[in-house]
């Protein structure tokens, strides 16, 4: 007869159950860290990287995309153009709610396919109201519906951005050309920014984004449309991998009604300046003092 005391048996059972419970509790983190390479874990903040280090990071992301997703992509690090301040305006008189902008964003920016995610949310509201509580974002009927108007909302690139102020790790900041960006490799996923944004412009990657290799847009930017990791926040970046090379954002090109006007606020001859000078213009929730770079106007 072995000398197993009642005390030892209970201690043993308790220890076993405790270890099992701990392993179960740690499981999500272990799965999560399987996606995180050592190089990425040790990587510095984007703004502290030297040009050589950035080059290595870009190549690492390209290799990881090829290895994990089977897609050959090129990741660039486009910097702000000196003398350029981006601005965007949208004509509510002609927007017909067709969601072509949201669709173009979905494809351009390598969004998660199952959730049909996009940085643009189109609100259908009753004419004569600006009531987001009674707006509809998942309408699926012919547009424009009688008595309705449509307001696409994306990141407004505020000059006094609440999302930037609340980030505890400075993973999001405003660049010299006015675009608010996120270092996806520095974000800790606390979602403070998502809660702080009065426009609900930020999205959280609850799951690892799913996207077919053949559908991945290979023209990518570090701060913009590269496929995001799980557990980080993302948002509209004015397609900076396009706009910092002089091109129009994907949503502006996709708009079939010509409602979107994009350009350099510092160029007095630009269409955006003409709109701001001559149309009836407003910004969303102006009373909050966020000073958006995205304007709405009427004919």
């Amino acid at each position: 007869m072995t000398d197993v005391t009642r005390r030892a048996a209970i201690t043993g059972i308790g220890a076993t159950l405790g270890a099992a419970a701990f392993a179960k509790a740690m499981e999500p983190i272990q799965k999560f860290t399987a996606d995180l390479s050592l190089d990425q874990f040790l990587q510095q903040h984007y703004r502290e990287l030297t040009p050589d280090e950035i080059e290595k990071v870009l190549r690492r992301i390209e290799e990881e995309t090829l290895r994990d997703r089977g897609a050959r992509v090129s990741v660039a690090d486009d910097r702000p153009i000196p003398g350029v301040q981006f601005g965007y305006a949208l004509n509510l008189s002609v927007c017909n709610g067709c969601r072509k902008c949201a669709e173009a964003c979905h494809q351009e920016n390598n969004h998660d396919r199952p959730s049909n995610q996009s940085y643009i949310r189109v609100f259908e509201m009753a004419q004569g109201s600006l009531d987001f509580e009674h707006a509809n974002t998942t309408y699926d009927h012919a547009v424009p519906a009688p008595g309705k108007y449509y307001m696409p909302v994306q990141c407004l690139q505020c000059d006094d951005a609440p999302c930037v102020a609340v980030c505890p790790v400075e993973a999001t900041w405003k660049e010299e050309d006015g675009i608010v960006v996120i270092d996806y490799d520095w974000c800790i996923g606390c979602r403070y920014c998502e809660a702080a944004c009065p426009y609900h412009a930020r999205r959280f990657n609850w799951t690892k984004p799913e996207i077919e290799a053949s559908e991945i847009n290979p023209d990518q930017g570090y701060l913009s449309n590269r496929v995001r990791p799980q557990g980080v926040v993302e948002k509209c970046h004015f397609c900076l991998h396009r706009t910092r090379r002089g091109k129009l954002p994907a949503c502006a090109e996709a708009c079939p009604t010509g409602a979107r006007v994009f350009g350099n606020l510092l160029d007095p001859e630009s269409p955006i300046r003409w709109v701001l000078d001559n149309k009836r213009v407003f910004v969303l929730k102006e009373e909050l003092g966020t000073r958006p770079r995205f304007f709405y106007f009427f004919d």
């Binding site: 017909n96 959730s115 189109v122 998942t138 309408y139 012919a142």
Partner: peptide, 18 residues
């Protein structure tokens, strides 16, 4: 400008297709 069918709505976690 004609009446058209919109692109697919987002598959929201909380909202059904309206």
């Amino acid at each position: 400008y004609p009446v058209v069918m919109p692109a697919a709505p987002p598959n929201d976690r909380f909202l059904p297709i309206a």
